[in-house]
Computed example of a mutant assay.
Amino acid sequence: MSDMLYFDHAATTPVHPRVLEAMTPYLTQVFGNPSSVHGAGREARKALEQARDAIASFMGAEAQSLIFTSGGTEADNMAIIGGAMAQRERGRHVITTQIEHHAVLHACEYLEQAGFDVTYLPVDETGSVRMEDLQQAVRPDTVLVSIMYGNNEVGTIQPIVEIGNFLREKGIIFHTDAVQAFGVLPFQVSELPVDMLSVSAHKINGPKGVGALYLGRKIPVSPILHGGSQERKRRAGTENLAGIVGFAEATKVAAEERADRVAKYEQMKAVMLAVWQEANIAYHVNGHPEHVLPHILNVSFPGVHTETMLMNLDLVGIAAASGSACTSGSLELSHVLVAMKLADEIARSAIRFSFGITNTVDEAKQAAQAVAQIVSRLARSK
């Protein structure tokens, strides 16, 4: 793995050395259950609440509004299923988009089986939701809207503030999946018109298996896990203390390095595009040209099938992706690119490069040159 050029940080990231160091004592020495009343339990509880304070502070939230989960998927499920179920007497209509992560889409499908009506909003060719589509979709029985902050495949950033302000006026609860935006976009939850927001540690160089749901005051959510009274009776189960401590450290590192990281990612994008332009190969950048996450570059090379490109890149030690890691392995077209109504040859040749802390600008150039060589070689062999 050491000599592999890894450009799949949107799928998962390596654990930062500082995160590993912060976690180690909670795997070896401080192993008490945070719910226990003895000294070991109190020590664990103190660490848990310090971590909650640190993460809440980073995202501009009150500490008590943060519920720890097993990751972004559980946070999304809790927000959507828990939020809808808590309001089912008020109404049974939910709105989301066609380009959400499967953690949101499958949660919505579950609600449909439970008797809810779900509207899946279309997007334009840049992957953006149109406000008029949302406005037209709202009904008197609409109780919940879930629209992601930044897309995990093409990086398009949605107009969250505009959407949230409109929904506030209507008195409709708004959830956003901010798993990809967290740590790269400088947002403060206290300044956003959102009621629920999902985040995950392993996308920001924290450990896998831990995430959180921001839950605004007085927002009704029925628990989806049943057992103990952890997390103020909102999420049963012993907290993943070491993971949560690691999550807190990852947010601290992200806070210190965010501006530098973003500048580096923008430079990587520019370098890759310059290489392809100079090599005079056909390429098409997918997603919004301006409102896009800095660490994601989704690009198509017409004439070269996605799987062929990924295989060829893998052979030269470069890891990229076809979109969502949760669906890689299937040869189906990305639901995001299908929703964007891209031409077939664009959709079938799309590759996602996603940048992270281990990458250098030189590596980005190397990867782009490898792509150019593969495209040229395959063109010659036809």
Score class of each variant (00 low, 15 high):
G329R: 13
V145W: 00
M78D: 03
H93A: 06
Q267N: 12
A319F: 09
V199L: 15
G237V: 00
L134K: 05
S328M: 14
K382C: 08
E266W: 05
R90K: 15
V338M: 12
S334E: 11
M4K: 13
D3H: 14
M59V: 15
G32I: 05
A61K: 04
F182M: 07
P122R: 08
L378P: 05
G246L: 09
G329H: 12
L215H: 00
F301G: 03
G127V: 09
V104Y: 05
H38Y: 13
S334Y: 12
N77E: 14
L241R: 05
Q366P: 02
V129T: 05
A282E: 15
A242K: 09
K208D: 13
V316K: 13
N151T: 07
A242T: 02
L310K: 12
I244A: 06
A339V: 10
D117F: 06
L5M: 14
A325E: 11
D3R: 14
L192M: 09
F301L: 03
C108E: 04
G329S: 09
F355I: 10
F174L: 02
R92Q: 15
H175V: 04
H291S: 11
A320P: 13
P159F: 09
S35I: 04
T24D: 10
R52Q: 03
G82K: 01
N280A: 15
R348T: 12
G356I: 05
N280V: 07
G243L: 03
G32K: 09
L20M: 12
A320K: 10
A212G: 10
